[in-house]
């Protein structure tokens, strides 16, 4: 964290590393652990579907997450608000905490989130005391409604999951950043540190990536690069002069004549 910056505070928890990591697709769980440690990752998402809730197995993912890391379980696999709510409760009962990233996806080809069902789940889970992070398609109305429902942050997608295409939804995320006060965490499609940096320069509170790091030749190395890029983007944002307002105009070519003292008439 750079001088002058404040940590991101969510539900009373101070977060200094604003690069969040997803834990799927790693070559091994050992490599995932090494990556979290190397890049000093503070927040990880884990798919609840992958957590063994019943009995210890030799491959339980939770055993590979370093102590002190904030666990944000996600409802990957849920197709409806009802399923997401049930998974979230299952997660809390299993002792996985109450930070929940709501993923409601009802399209197996594009994996795009269903904003309507996600909003319903956000309303129910926020009311039930969860710290809720809805993964969403960047739509202003839904972002507002999720914020109003008590989301701790909204997580608009940059582009299709795993596509590495970066901020294809840039203009819509920009609008959400401008219009809501709830933190915005850009998630999905972030393939390079420079794309993460851009999201932070725009004003995102944090960035989450998974596939790009997990599939890298050197996952710990790339995770460190992401962490630094996110910090650089944050610093750039904080250090930039105020943006000129879109509505202001430096001169008045159409109305200036009304104020002219050289009226020939």
């Amino acid at each position: 964290m750079m001088v002058g910056d404040q940590p991101l505070v969510i539900a009373g928890r101070e977060i200094r590393n604003r690069f969040f990591l997803g834990t799927g697709k790693f070559q091994s769980k050992e490599m995932m652990r090494e990556t979290i440690q190397a890049a000093k990752i503070e927040v990880v998402t884990v798919a609840l579907r992958r957590i063994d809730l019943h009995s210890p197995t030799p491959e339980n993912i939770l055993d590979f997450i370093p102590a002190g890391t904030v666990l944000m379980t996600n409802t990957s696999g849920a197709r409806t608000a009802a399923e997401a709510v049930r998974l979230a409760r299952l997660s809390r009962e299993a002792g996985c905490g109450n930070w929940i990233k709501i993923e409601v996806i009802n399209d197996s080809r594009y994996l795009l989130p269903d904003n309507l069902e996600t909003l319903k789940a956000t309303e129910q889970l926020a009311a039930d005391g969860f710290v809720v992070f809805p993964y969403m398609y960047p739509d202003l109305y839904f972002a507002r409604a999720m914020a109003k429902a008590g989301a701790a942050a909204v997580m608009p997608l940059g582009s299709l999951i795993g596509s590495h295409q970066g901020l294809k939804t840039r203009e819509f995320i920009r609008i959400i950043l401008a219009e809501i006060d709830t933190p915005v965490i850009v998630d999905a499609g972030i393939g390079t540190p420079s794309q993460a940096l851009e999201a932070m320069e725009m004003g995102a509170a944090a960035v989450l990536a998974n596939t790009a790091v997990a599939e890298a030749g050197d996952p710990p190395g790339l995770a460190c690069a992401f962490t630094q890029a996110v910090a650089a983007g944050r610093l750039a944002r904080l250090s930039s002069p105020p943006q000129p307002r879109d509505l202001a105009s430096p001169s008045s070519p159409l109305t200036g004549f009304l104020y002219s003292s050289h009226d020939p008439g």
Binding site: Q27, L48, R49, R50, D52, L53, E59, R86, L87
Partner: peptide, 11 residues
């Protein structure tokens, strides 16, 4: 490859 034993919780 990453062996996955738990991939969903029946609801």
């Amino acid at each position: 490859m990453d062996p996955v034993l738990t991939d969903w919780h029946s609801l």
